[in-house]
Design a protein around this nucleic acid. Structure first.
Lengths: 231, 231
DNA sequence: CCCTGATATCTGATATATCATATATCTGTA
DNA sequence: TACAGATATATGATATATCAGATATCAGGG
């Protein structure tokens, strides 16, 4: 029925949401920058209502703050925001790995191996965007096994928050090399039949703010110099 | 400055949100029931805009579904919704317990003991509302130690979803007795200096859907007979 | 010069009107 | 009688106008 329909009407609200998310993702809309309903309405030639609705959604997801009658600002990403995101992502990804262990077979670990290899190739080619897409796809191998779509949506929204503003055209190569190594260790634990250890490794190492802190600080401090990150 | 101000203007949108949440909480707005913007606008004498904005927020939080141009429906709570909520709550509460273990002292465990005792007294008096308030307060003892307000908000929203619709004036007493026993075990693990075991117990026993499934099914199946829960 | 109160301006919040889509009902034809 | 197309109705989605609160600026008095 509806899911088979080749046509769909995308609400203006959704289009605005997608547009603004795209702007943040490309770095065209930076942390701290102001968004003005009246200007946007004039620029796009649409009314303020769908704009406002899209922004209310973005606010609920943490991307912007609406100051009543004062203005709308794109949220900076502070170190504690990063720490909080790591905490939630780590806990939820670990939970999925444990809960869906029965569905993680050699097809899945094989897929993750491929993606990890593609990540390494992207690293060698300095292709940042591709590296991150493969990274997201790596984690999605097990996330997509979960029917808990709310959980996955929470994780994905937080990842978008993490990835948007530091989404620069560059790496801390040592971090990414370590990261792909952690992926490999993770796969090894899964393949050796120890999903509990794999789950713990994902939460306590790969998504541990404390463990990753030196890389995080190095990575984000470089961005801070570029003015993309406000403490 | 603003946080000290004894006066505040509460937007219509927020008032509508609070009102509707209160209605769901009291069972005056049941799962499956329709909400009509035009009727509500007429009844409250306010425009549809803040109504719609409140409902968009409620939709984002899982309480309602807005069917474009067709109507707005209060979401039923299915068994899989409950399972999903348990999964997320368990993972996140366990994470807080681990991360904030340094802040959990005898003051906190003492507080939890008191609340658990109050829960037992409510149970003896068949005071359902009070039992649940103490239960929420019990868990909040450690949740409030976390500065990850996004995490806590996620947990609280899911709990509201769980508690609203089965919020009847009654108990499965054996479940609640078992539950307070689990609280006691949890406190014991904390006091014996094993926060990791306490964290694991909270996630793998107290908030494990599989472990609690028999109680859940008994509790919610009674509600289903009352028409409060749709599968 | 500084402070206070009045006024102007800005911008989101709300009210009202209209539009766009989904569904129900009616009408005509085979 | 059944089916297809046209029309009516319902309801959320969007457009436009106005309001309400926050901030900036100005004017007057001490």
């Amino acid at each position: 029925m509806q899911t088979d329909c080749p046509f769909s009407v995308v609400s203006l609200r959704q289009q605005v949401y997608d547009y603004l998310r795209g702007q943040m993702n490309r770095g065209d809309l930076r942390p701290g920058s102001a968004i003005n309903l009246g200007e946007m309405s004039a620029r796009f030639g649409i009314s303020r209502t769908p704009l406002r609705e899209a922004l209310l959604q973005l606010e609920a997801e943490g991307f912007v703050t609406i100051y009543p009658r004062r203005g709308i600002v794109v949220n900076p990403l502070s170190e504690s925001d990063i720490r909080h995101a790591y905490e939630v992502i780590g806990a939820l990804e670990a939970s999925v790995i444990l809960n869906e262990q029965g569905k993680i077979s050699s097809a899945e670990t094989g897929q993750m191996r491929e993606l990890n290899e593609l990540m390494r190739q992207s690293l060698d080619r300095d292709d940042f965007a591709e590296f991150y897409d493969h990274n997201v796809a790596f984690h999605n191998v097990y996330l997509d096994l979960s029917d808990n779509r709310g959980l996955v949506r929470t994780v994905m929204t937080l990842k978008q928050r993490l990835y948007d503003f530091p989404r620069r055209k560059g790496f801390v190569k040592e971090w990414e090399t370590t990261s792909t190594g952690e992926h490999e260790r993770f796969i090894g634990l899964l393949e050796s039949g120890d999903p509990k250890a794999a789950s713990g490794y994902m939460r306590d190492v790969h998504w541990s703010f404390d463990v990753q802190k030196p890389w995080i600080r190095r990575y984000y401090s470089e961005l801070e110099r570029e003015g993309a990150l406000n403490r």
